[in-house]
């Protein structure tokens, strides 16, 4: 009974995964229509749409982690990153588009958090698509109103004397948090350092992992 998924497991034990078999919605119909009209008008090709999806799927927080690891191990790069995030990321070969990327540095006494209060602006070129929670009204409003409480729900309890800065992204300006380098990592190379950098630490709702 392939469609009997009340317990969310198929008979083979795999988690049930929804396919494109739900009823066609009005907005899905619009997506198909818009895409086909654009193809008919010679604006895009089906291959370009697929290639774009591929490129998007290939972007993961590992890109951002490489930038952070380089900044931790190369003080001159770090200075360039903080002065102009877009140029520094491009220097590493990442496509940043026309966006201004601003890296904000966590230090011993300052912690940074990013949000887009209006919608979902996010440093997707370096982190991939935003997690669901980042787009919720809950996060978008509470990150500004009660950021310390939000952080503590993520398991991050900031000392009271730590300054917390919340950065609201805009259509053409994206922030990324440069987390503080964890202690005990002096002998680690860039690759090992990058493995400590989590997505959440670059949003500011978490910290990098500690070395094992």
């Amino acid at each position: 009974m392939p469609h009997d998924h009340h317990d969310h497991l198929s008979p083979s034990g795999h988690p049930y995964r929804q396919d494109n078999d739900g009823p066609l919605s009005y907005w899905q119909t619009m997506e198909i229509a818009v895409r086909e009209l654009m193809i008919e008008k010679g604006e895009v090709s089906a291959a370009e749409v697929s290639a774009q999806i591929d490129a998007m799927d290939a972007r993961t927080p590992a890109n951002g982690a490489r930038v952070v690891a380089r900044a931790w191990s190369d003080p001159e790069f770090k200075a360039r990153l903080l002065a102009n995030g877009s140029d520094a990321a491009r220097e590493m070969g990442f496509d940043i588009g026309p966006m201004h990327l601003v890296a904000v540095e966590n230090t011993e006494d300052t912690h940074n958090l990013i949000v887009c209060t209006l919608c979902s602006c996010y440093p997707r070129n370096l982190l991939g698509l935003p997690p669901d929670w980042y787009k919720t009204r809950e996060y978008r409003s509470r990150a500004v109103k009660e950021p310390r409480k939000v952080l503590s729900e993520f398991g991050l309890d900031l000392p009271e004397n730590t300054t917390l800065r919340v950065h609201d992204s805009t259509a053409d300006m994206r922030y990324i948090v440069l987390p503080a380098r964890p202690k005990g990592t002096d002998s680690m190379d860039s690759d090992a350092l990058a493995a400590l950098v989590t997505r959440d630490s670059m949003i500011g709702v978490g910290l990098p992992k500690s070395p094992a």
Binding site: N20, E31, E43, A171
Partner: peptide, 29 residues
């Protein structure tokens, strides 16, 4: 709290946004 797998139609919307903007038909604004 983790991200879901985006449905194909959602990824296509995202692609159309990028490609339509690249063609100069609209801006993010």
């Amino acid at each position: 709290m983790d991200s879901h797998d985006f449905a194909l139609w959602e990824k296509r919307v995202d692609a159309l946004m990028i490609l339509g903007a690249a063609r100069g038909h609209f801006t993010v604004d």
